[in-house]
Design a protein around this nucleic acid. Sequence first.
DNA 1: GATGAATGAGTCTTCATTCAT
DNA 2: GATGAATGAAGACTCATTCAT
Lengths: 209, 209, 209, 209
Amino acid sequence: MSSRPVARPTRRGAATRERIIEAATEVFARRGVHGTRVADIAERAGVAYGLVYHHFRNKEEILSAIFAERWAQYVAYLEEVAGMPLSFRERMARLVHFWVETYRVETDLMTVMINEITRSYEFLESHDITAVLVAFDPIERIIAEGRESGQVRATVDARLATYAVLGVAEMVLTGYVIGSLPRSDQGAYARDEAQLLALLLDGLSASPS
Amino acid sequence: MSSRPVARPTRRGAATRERIIEAATEVFARRGVHGTRVADIAERAGVAYGLVYHHFRNKEEILSAIFAERWAQYVAYLEEVAGMPLSFRERMARLVHFWVETYRVETDLMTVMINEITRSYEFLESHDITAVLVAFDPIERIIAEGRESGQVRATVDARLATYAVLGVAEMVLTGYVIGSLPRSDQGAYARDEAQLLALLLDGLSASPS
Amino acid sequence: MSSRPVARPTRRGAATRERIIEAATEVFARRGVHGTRVADIAERAGVAYGLVYHHFRNKEEILSAIFAERWAQYVAYLEEVAGMPLSFRERMARLVHFWVETYRVETDLMTVMINEITRSYEFLESHDITAVLVAFDPIERIIAEGRESGQVRATVDARLATYAVLGVAEMVLTGYVIGSLPRSDQGAYARDEAQLLALLLDGLSASPS
Amino acid sequence: MSSRPVARPTRRGAATRERIIEAATEVFARRGVHGTRVADIAERAGVAYGLVYHHFRNKEEILSAIFAERWAQYVAYLEEVAGMPLSFRERMARLVHFWVETYRVETDLMTVMINEITRSYEFLESHDITAVLVAFDPIERIIAEGRESGQVRATVDARLATYAVLGVAEMVLTGYVIGSLPRSDQGAYARDEAQLLALLLDGLSASPS
DNA sequence: GATGAATGAGTCTTCATTCAT
DNA sequence: GATGAATGAAGACTCATTCAT
């Protein structure tokens, strides 16, 4: 019908919008987008549910907003690492630390990004999948450059390896979230980082084959 | 009330039940459990939706059935590999081949198991999470045994490594499903298997650190 | 999403559908389509409102069904009159009688057809206006033929006259509905018919100009 | 509570109020009162929707204002014609010209008056129907006087004839609005006026019966 | 066993209206 | 006066589930 701008020019409006996004991130992480009612989001945000529709056209648009505003930051960091004048090992160390650290600090956001964005047919179908996959690019670049500089084995398929690296990160973080990989002290995370780095760089074998 | 027999051991009944499970696997894979209507499953199975309730108490029970009947097979194979008198390398090769092969052949089933069982708060909350995590055990055992026999680096944390291994498998298979890792010819899968095996065993680095 | 056929193969289903249409006709006549809640229709039909959606995709589709199933009958009668080997005067008498009689007997249906179909921008925009205007054709034909046979003044614009004739019918019937033209006894309707026929044939003037 | 002044007699205030009324007339004509949102009116008027409530207590009050301010003018003209020392024929000519002309110039206003005032149960129920029907009076008077002076057939029922006259006017104008009676040049309207006048005065028949 | 009509709780979404700024 | 953020009642629509046939 008519095109409501789905407002937000004022400071208060922007703040409310932000609160809704944060609330949505929390509940999406717990119950998934499908399992979340708009009323849950509103309640968590402490606003009337009608207000959600003042800021977003519908539930999916909130997810899109989370994606639009957070994914770019995520990719930006990956790109930053890819652009640093560091050794391949150093770069991987940064990435591993970043993943572990981010998951610890922004668990809900990472959960949503993984489950509702990266994994969701629904999301991927209604959005430009390219926008999601740009996160893979800097990592592929890091690996490809490492290969060119001789730091990565020459036979490595950079693209496939990228999936492997991201898979490792995702599953371990999922273990944290689900609680099947419980980590109570700070040191545990540091040890995990070392472990993961070693795994990614040197694999499991005691001696190269 | 809740003592309706639900499933019947008739020949036809069993076949219908199986068709419903297969249909559910397909649509669950496409739209997720939440996004799937019982009518979708019935339509896909070519039966009236009311009939679904002759065989299953409700929608979730279909998912539970998929889990109960398929997960056990999956774990059984992992256990079989863990019990084979093979080298660590050989065992890992079997696993990698199994994952790639299974995903190729039973894409929907793997998708459902990953997205709706392994990842789902809902499922994990209403079921014994232990039943899910048993799939991790044989792999952890393979790694631990490999470490004991000196085939795996002594410093490897078997549990964390298990997550890493499964993460690699899952993400690559997700790439297949989403189509972002397109593989048209048979050889591509074989090459991927070799790549993944090398990555898991030897890591990315050109030289061990 | 998936295309629910919006059922009705069984006898009971068809009967229910019919009851819903009749109930909708009543409430649409009283409150208009916009002012009617699906729950009102269901209540009037004595069914759960969910059932309405078993038979119709939405509220508008009920109106479309009323139109589709009733308008054709209405036009069919007009066509019948147009096809009768009668004088112009006789034909007009039949039409006037038909309008008055139908309105008396099927007040709600006529009200809905006039207010929600003939007059509604919403309806006319979402349907083929031609399907509505076919009701004008037989009348225009009657007038044109009357003109050719010398029974209607040669200067009459058949199309414009058709609008005038239908306007007379509609407004008088509206007066009946609104109650501003109260008619309690049978004779009143008969007198009105005579009046209207005289008006349409001879106009208001005491002497032709 | 309900004693908010609502309207303010400031210069700017009055202008805004007028703009809102004009905007409302336009959108009411397109979508009907029910189908119109206050936000639509405000948007069309180029003001914030909250401002509408500075001038009107609610949406219906805008319609009431349209009625109050325009209907009186309309009736006033009819009364003026009824009071003119003219022949019946002349008076009818004035009326027909007025209707055609007004509809041409103020299409939206006429549409709203016909559909949302004259026809609306809602409106007629919440207002004094008498206030609406006063528009019928001068016409009835014109006809009655014509009859007394011998210019109108003695057998004519003035009240019924009034409905017929207004029905003719309304339907033809509806044809203009809907576009099913397209009139591109000025002459067409003039010809229609002549046609309608002849129809009303002399009817369709070639010879009086 | 099989069908699909029927039910109604659960949600999404709209939008009139209020009110702080 | 003017704005648009905020509220929440109202209603449309979906769909899991029951049950008569």
